[in-house]
Computed example of a mutant assay.
Amino acid sequence: MNHLYSTRVRAVGGRSGTIRSDDGILDMALAMPRELGGKGGATNPEQLFAAGYAACFENAVIHVTRGTDNRVGDKDIEVETEVGLVPNEAGGFVLAVAMDVTIAGISQEVAEQIVAAAHAVCPYSNAIRGNIDVATTVHTR
């Protein structure tokens, strides 16, 4: 498979360790959230997933509107993504995602169509489809 882009990140020490990308741009400590009994004070995998999904989804919205009458620019969209860790029946855990999307300058109906189209092309949406519940709310301003 031809990759358009590929990156590599090394994690050491699990949820209380460190992460570092192969180019060194991402280089930080991790900490178990206080809500899970940890010390907090550093990022965690759920925050990183929420950040990546929000940024990627914003770009998917911009992508699907290129060449249309409803073109969305960088400053026209805001995505807030909440990632929750939920226990499952097997004694493990699953993720739940709530995504709040706000798009400026278009009608509610068009915004909802754009968000649906973005879910079809966003790599994160495609990766988790059928495995993680994603509740999406769409707003206009």
Score class of each variant (00 low, 15 high):
Asn2Ser: 15
Asn2Gly: 15
His3Arg: 15
Tyr5Asp: 12
Ser6Asp: 14
Thr7His: 10
Val9His: 10
Arg10Asp: 14
Gly13Glu: 02
Arg15Cys: 04
Arg15Lys: 12
Gly17Ala: 09
Gly17Cys: 11
Gly17His: 04
Gly17Thr: 04
Arg20Ser: 07
Asp22His: 12
Ile25Phe: 06
Leu26Trp: 05
Leu26Asn: 03
Leu26Gln: 09
Leu26Val: 06
Asp27Leu: 04
Met32Ser: 06
Glu35Ser: 11
Leu36Met: 12
Leu36Val: 10
Gly37Val: 10
Gly38Cys: 10
Gly38Asp: 05
Lys39His: 11
Ala42Cys: 08
Ala42Ser: 06
Thr43Val: 11
Ala51Phe: 03
Ala51Asn: 08
Gly52Ala: 01
Gly52Arg: 05
Tyr53Arg: 00
Ala55Lys: 12
Ala55Val: 05
Phe57Trp: 01
Phe57Leu: 03
Thr65Gly: 09
Arg66Phe: 05
Gly67Leu: 15
Asn70Lys: 06
Arg71Lys: 15
Arg71Ala: 15
Gly73Phe: 09
Asp76Thr: 11
Asp76Glu: 03
Val79Asp: 00
Glu80Thr: 15
Glu80Phe: 13
Gly84Lys: 10
Leu85Asp: 08
Val86Asp: 09
Pro87Gly: 04
Glu89Phe: 07
Glu89Arg: 11
Val94Phe: 14
Ala96Ile: 11
Val97Asn: 12
Val97Met: 04
Met99Pro: 08
Val101Leu: 05
Val101Thr: 10
Ala104Pro: 01
Gly105Ile: 02
Gln108Val: 03
Gln108Glu: 14
Glu109Trp: 14
Val110Tyr: 06
Glu112Gln: 13
Glu112Ile: 08
Gln113Leu: 13
Gln113Cys: 06
Val115Gln: 05
Ala117Asp: 08
Ala117Pro: 07
Ala118Tyr: 10
Ala118Gln: 07
His119Phe: 06
His119Pro: 09
Ala120Tyr: 05
Val121Arg: 11
Val121Tyr: 08
Val121Ser: 02
Cys122Lys: 01
Ile128Ala: 12
Gly130Met: 05
Asn131Pro: 08
Asp133Glu: 14
Thr136Ile: 02
Thr136His: 01
Thr137Tyr: 08
Val138Ala: 13
His139Ser: 13
Thr140Gly: 02
Thr140Lys: 07
Arg141Gly: 12
Arg141Leu: 01
